[in-house]
Design a protein around this nucleic acid. Structure first.
Lengths: 135, 135
DNA sequence: CATAACTGTAACAAATTTAATTACATTAAA
DNA sequence: TTTAATGTAATTAAATTTGTTACAGTTATG
């Protein structure tokens, strides 16, 4: 279980504090208290989902990819795709056992349902609403 | 992200296949395809939550702690307590930053809401209903 | 009552995953 | 042309998870 979602939320919240301005990975890393390279890696991912835009070169930096009212926390969750919320076993169940043979299939549909419930819940909150708590 | 929930579900499903009988950790491990000690470790935990009972000595083994109609998958989820579903960052945010200072608090209430949504979803399914798929 | 077949648990080792670091190429403003 | 950024690869370090070994404790059974 890793902290991608938290890091992503921290980044996006920071970017929403100073709308229009470009913020550097070093500044962001200083607030999160992690390595700037990790920030840039996570931003690379979030940018693939249109949540962040970046500008290279001196005076470059990052800003939100679209209005924070149009970013839901469900969007963030889907972007980080932190693996199934119920966890992921790495065993290969015994195919000679009636339970072992089928269990992964049933656990997977279960995981899908849970993921849907999570995204539903998170879609009810926008980044704008979340980051309002810090102003 | 680990596989505790899946292992727990596998164990409980197996126990529900042969009601009344005692099943050994070795048999269970053979179906899951993991080490028997891991099975006993997970069972120790599930037993603390009343989901499994055990009997020592020769001809000993495991069985369900209560009727499978009275075990919901939410109970299992709570028992394994796989850590927050949204993940867990291990950084210590910068307390001199307005965002860093407060973000963990806000992320935690978010995590609580999500956990509630998950448990709600999982409580709608009993072990009896789940394990029926294997009969 | 001795043995065999289990559970219970601790201690350690291996494997995997996550996070951190270093290095440097690329870009663009000043 | 220098400076301050991003972009990204490669490597190392740390933490977590899983697997293994060993053995003490328990109880049915011959």
């Amino acid at each position: 279980m890793n902290g991608q979602f938290q890091i992503a939320m921290h980044i996006l919240t920071l970017l929403d504090q100073e709308p229009g301005e470009l913020i550097s990975s070093e500044y962001i890393a200083g607030s999160i208290n992690i390595n700037p390279v990790l920030v840039r890696k996570e931003i690379k991912n979030l940018r693939n989902y249109g949540l962040i835009t970046s500008k290279e070169g001196q005076a470059g930096g990052y800003s939100l990819g679209r209005s924070p009212e149009k970013i839901t926390l469900g969007d963030v969750y889907k972007a980080v795709n932190n693996g199934p919320a119920l966890g992921q076993a790495k065993n290969l169940p015994n195919p000679d056992c009636p339970v072992g043979r089928q269990i992964n299939q049933h656990l997977n549909t279960l995981a899908d349902d849970v993921q849907l419930a999570i995204i539903n819940q998170l879609n009810s909150i926008t980044l704008a609403a979340f980051s309002l708590k810090f102003k």
